[in-house]
Each structure stands twice: as C-alpha cells, then as structure tokens.
Amino acid sequence: MKPSAFTYHAPTSLDDAVRVLAEAGPDGKVLAGGQSLIPMMNMRLAAPAVLVDINRLPGLDTVRVDTGGVRVGALVRHTDLEDDAQAARTVPLLRQGLRLVAHPVIRNRGTTVGSIVHADPSAEMPAVLALLGGSMEVRGPSGTRSVGAADFFTGPLETGMAEGEIAVSAYFPRPAPGSGTAFVEIARRSGDYAMCGVAAVVTLDADLRITAARCCYISVAPVPLVVDMAEAVVGAVPASADLSAAADLAADRIEPEDDIHASADYRAHLARVLTERALAEAAEAALRETAGPGPHTTGIGAMR
C-alpha cells in the first residue's frame, strides 16, 4: 500500500497554484489535509501524476466571522474550526457537525473545505453547507467565482468545480434569528461514516411557532439531500409538531441503498427516526435561542 509516483508542487501563492494545476490538466490534484486523498493513493485507487500541495499557500488558514456568517479558509483544519468559539456561537451547526467527523486525530489534519470538495455523500460538512445554503469560493484560471451549495454537490464525490479550480473558502451563513440546529447520526463505531445522519434547522417566531424547518440527509442519497419540512411543521409549536409527517416527507425523497453495514430499509428507518430526533433537538435549541441566555424550562419532551 504505497502511492504511485507523482510530480510534487508546493506553491506559495494562489496564482502559482492555479497555474500549476491548470498546466497539469486532468492528471493534477490538489492536496489539502490528505485525509481522504492519501488513503486512496496508498491503495492506488487514486494516482494523480501531479500533486499541488496547497498547504504553503498564505492566508487560507483563517476563520472569518461576521454577523452574516462564517467564512472558512481552505487550510482551516476541522479541529481549528471546531475550537473556534466565535464561529460556534454564530453557526452552532459547525461544531455540531464537526464533532461527528472521524476522530480528533483525523480532524487535526483534515480540512473542512477539503471535506466539502471531496463531496462524500456520507460526510457531515457538505451537509452543513447544504442545509445552511452556504457557498464555495473557487479560484480558477479565469478568476474567482462563488458556487452555491445547491449547485456544488452534483453526485457522489462529484462537484460543480471545474478542472483546474481550487476552492479557496467555504461560507456558512448564520441561520435566521430564532433558529436552532442539530446534527444527529448513527454510525457503527464512534467516528465512522454514518449509516444515516440528519442535520436540522428549525426557526421559531416570537410566539414560539415554527416558521421554517429543513433537514439535510447524509448516507441516504447521492448528495447531501436537503428536504424542506415546512409543509409538515410550520405553524405548530414545537411540542405539538407532527414529526412523523416530517419523517414522511423525508421518506419520499431519500434514495437509500444496501451495503454491508446496513440495508436500504434500515437506513430509511433511521432517516425517519433521526428526522424526529434532529427536529426535536433543533427546536429545543431554537427555544433556548429565543429565550435568550439564562435558565429555560419550556417542556419539549412531547416531541421525542
């Protein structure tokens, strides 16, 4: 299990990186944290002839937080984003999702942007981006462009990025005021890719009625699948929301498949169970958010 030979570049400017990558054409690959790419290279499932190591590029290792959301540079490691208290306050779903990504040692090296570009339909961070309606900033030979999450994920391990483009950052918008989020999943072992996972965002108005709710599903569709739950739950207070109707909406949309770890039926079942759990947790978080800081005791037990 040793990788094939390749030509190695470690440019120190983004322009150089884009140029080298463009020159390499279809044989070129970007190396970020390597936590997905190098296992594949070690197994010779991937054998790029040219590797452009972006780890020396300046300025890409920063997390920028403003009132609108969080911008995550391409060299920000999962761990650094997880540890960023401001980012966690602004977009709590980041930390909620990151804690489910592999184990800390992998998160110490792997990048959040790399994970999104890798576009594994079982990965958590693509779902976070998709659920929040975020976007990717990508740089190519013809300049910089922004690609919305809905256009970004086109298939398993496939994205809307063109050959020769480098992702520079990911932008995670802050959910609307009164929102709460949650990420729940069932994996075989701790740290494994999930058999099914659901990220949810629930928004409440001043009367604590649900005004918006969405879920995003991993491991049950070719891409992180966002399902709008408004039809099932909008207008209800969390305690009396019809979560099984929400689960029905999900059931209609997911396309689970059998594999050695779980049958399609079981995954579909988990999608239902986790829809209810995720929405309940997100609503709970929204209630806390709406109530502001301080002790809070509104009963939402009925939702479980």
Partner: peptide
C-alpha cells in the same frame, strides 16, 4: 503511526514527508 506534529497528534501514514517538512 500517530506522531505529534507541532504538538498535535496526526497520522504519519497520511502525510508525505515533503509536506511534513513544512
């Protein structure tokens, strides 16, 4: 294969020596 890279545990089988030199 875990080693500490700048104090953080990382997998040395998932890193090229040329990158580690950074």
């Amino acid at each position: 294969c875990t080693v500490l890279v700048d104090g953080r545990p990382m997998r040395s089988c998932l890193m090229f020596a040329v990158s580690a030199a950074q």
